[in-house]
Design a binder for these strands. Structure first.
Lengths: 155, 155
DNA sequence: ACAAATGACACTAAAACGGTATCATTACGC
DNA sequence: GCGTAATGATACCGTTTTAGTGTCATTTGT
């Protein structure tokens, strides 16, 4: 029983990386190199994020992806919704059969409350909140900004 | 993304029903009739609960299942553990690859905290807590006790 | 003996998950 | 204009999990 699938997880990582690059776009190739995510998988994922309006993409040589929204507004729950089809911890009894009671009905109320609580906490986690907590030795964005100023890194 | 699978859900319902019958056992046939759960599925589930020490069973004519533990001690998290293989909301990055950082590490800490919180809430839900909240019109146990009074149960 | 019950276990179907592969299109730079 | 580096769109595949079925053996009360 996992709350976060690999899709969501990879997406968070990629988005954090992109957020640190700010307006400078990164290609799938670069992200693969940096994040060690299987390339075709990452590509599909990035396309999805593009279609959902979370990333902006530019085609052609020198193209790539940038964040389309500010890091504060991209929350963990958004990604869960995109990649894991929303959040509904319950499902069965309470839908069609409308709970043939016998004392089990309260389960719905309990689970719903727990769900709301978890959801609320998950929605507090955003790209911005994650990169803010990065450790001192991960001084990446400086490097990137320096490197990107002359641009054209052809690794 | 669901937190509770059908197995767990059905099990909760069955256990609530059995708890209300107190020491009087109920057969799979009766549970199927009352709870509208597919029979073979329910049977497998009951056997599992028996093996896990949550139910006690008696074979032969007039046999069936009773709770082996007090309703207070059977918690939702027990069932999740049994039917959904434990709870570990995270999984991937943080295990083998030991998180190739790049500022994404904090995700683990956040998710872990949320997981602990959800888990704590889920563990508060027990069979006892559920049947305590049953609505007045679900006066089932009286009926049962009356009906079962002549049925001398041995063990 | 018979019927009613569980025990053990093998099997299947469908969905979700994780990942791969292919071809088309776009755009930069020479 | 051509080559190359990039994304867009999509179809496919293998494994695991979930949900559910089926069968046969064993036990037990009447």
């Amino acid at each position: 029983m996992k709350l976060i699938t690999r899709n969501t997880d990879y997406a968070m990582r990629a988005l954090c990386y992109l957020a640190q690059r700010r307006e400078f776009s990164a290609s799938a190739t670069e992200l693969v190199r940096e994040l060690r995510i299987p390339r075709p998988f990452l590509r599909k994922l990035l396309q999805k994020l593009g279609g959902e309006g979370i990333l902006r993409s530019t085609k052609g040589q020198g193209g790539g992806f940038t964040l389309a929204r500010s890091p504060e507004t991209v929350r963990l729950t958004d990604l869960i919704r995109i990649f894991q089809g929303g959040i509904q911890l319950n499902e069965c009894i309470f839908k069609k059969r409308v709970c043939p009671n016998r004392g089990t009905c309260p389960l719905k109320r309990e689970i719903d409350a727990i769900e709301r609580s978890a959801l609320q906490q998950l929605s507090k986690v955003s790209i911005a909140s994650l990169i803010k907590k990065k450790r001192p030795q991960d001084r990446l964005d400086n490097k990137i900004q320096r490197a990107s100023f002359k641009k054209r890194r052809s690794l």
